[in-house]
Design a protein around this nucleic acid. Structure first.
Lengths: 214, 214
DNA sequence: GTCTATAGTAGGATAGAC
DNA sequence: GTCTATCCTACTATAGAC
């Protein structure tokens, strides 16, 4: 039997089914057959909307990054004022929802390395301007000093994610801790901020965590 | 007919054939049949030495990173003295051989994203200690000041590669130039170096180039 | 332990009927 | 837009020759 639906509806349906499967299993272990079976549609239908499994992944990544950043932006704008306080909220891992936590766990599986990597890129792209704006505000208030707010934001987001994300790269736990401990100092020197301004990023301190691990 | 070789010889033979094919075509488009055909061996032989196409890729990446860093180290130790001069040589893109250049071009193809990404990780791992040593020397000479030479090295290598490598990530040419232009300032502020110390990294200057793009 | 040959499974992708 | 049938290739399994 053959059920015809609105293209947008069908597309979203496939997208979300794929996302659910990628997170429940992994991207690698999820087959196009799985997606097809769970929706009760033909494989050709999937390929009508997404030209490859890879493109389907791209769409899922965009979708996830969009949603994640939207949620974070809302909490930032709601709770905090002042650049430093807002950064604290923006990068607070403890503020994640239960769903975000389970997604994070799934992303750290070997079969989700590709998904994880691409998601990090998408997140840097979206978070950097926000972070840069906070840096800019901080400069206005005399907290920071830099000629390149956006580039500092990008370097920190990408560099720290690259170096501290477990699962994607073959770093040992000691490596990660070592790097995380250096983070406050690195941020402070890039922003010419007063020593201790970013002590809340130190993983050793209670109630404070590292700047995301997505 | 059946030709028996030393395991190490055979392994290397497969490794280099694979590398050549990955660079001539791409990793994605190279099939195990291609490797098998070009060497005139059976598919089982490949799988005897490498348990999957993925593991073969790993070995190729290690091999390439090893060779690349060895070459660079040699030129560094040969030509230059003093931390700044050595950094200049270490990160000089113009010093690449013709072979390195064509490899770089091939890595920027879509089918080589996986290979490219893994190679960048392998290079950060190997170059960071070298870079960190130079930073350390520079601190001794009073050129730089930092509490975290290794972490600064890692942050810069990974962050800059992540942000300026074309092909792997969907940045525009303008984005890349913008970031590259900020690099000297970022390096100087992380190392507390005298402004202008790293002007040679500025892509705008004649005879100077950005810190690698692998 | 090293190598060949071959047959078979599973999953990504496509063509073409409807 | 959707489905069916088919293709291609990564990978496994096996059986056996040197």
């Amino acid at each position: 039997m053959r059920t015809v639906k609105e293209p947008d509806v069908r597309r979203l349906e496939i997208l979300e089914a794929a996302k659910r499967l990628f997170l429940k299993q992994t991207y690698d272990t999820t087959t196009t057959n799985d997606v097809m079976r769970v929706l009760g549609i033909a494989k050709g239908t999937i390929y009508h909307y997404f030209s490859s499994k890879n493109h389907l992944l791209d769409a899922v990544v965009e979708h996830m990054a969009e949603a994640y950043v939207a949620r974070r932006m809302k909490t930032v704008e709601a709770c905090a004022s002042g650049p430093l306080a807002r950064m604290r909220v923006l990068f607070d891992r403890d503020a994640r929802s239960a769903e975000e936590r389970s997604a994070t766990a799934s992303l750290h599986q070997p079969g989700n390395v590709t998904l994880h990597t691409r998601l990090l890129v998408a997140l840097v792209q979206r978070l950097a301007p926000v972070f840069a704006q906070l840096i800019h505000d901080g400069c206005d208030e005399g907290l920071f000093r830099t000629e390149h707010p956006l580039e500092v934001a990008e370097l920190l987001l990408s560099g720290i994610q690259f170096l501290t994300d477990e699962g994607v790269h073959p770093w040992s736990a000691e490596d990660r801790t070592r790097r995380l401990r250096a983070v406050p100092a690195l941020v402070e020197s890039l922003l010419a901020a007063k020593p201790g301004s970013f002590a809340f990023l130190d993983p050793g301190r209670a109630g404070a965590r590292r700047p995301r691990s997505a």
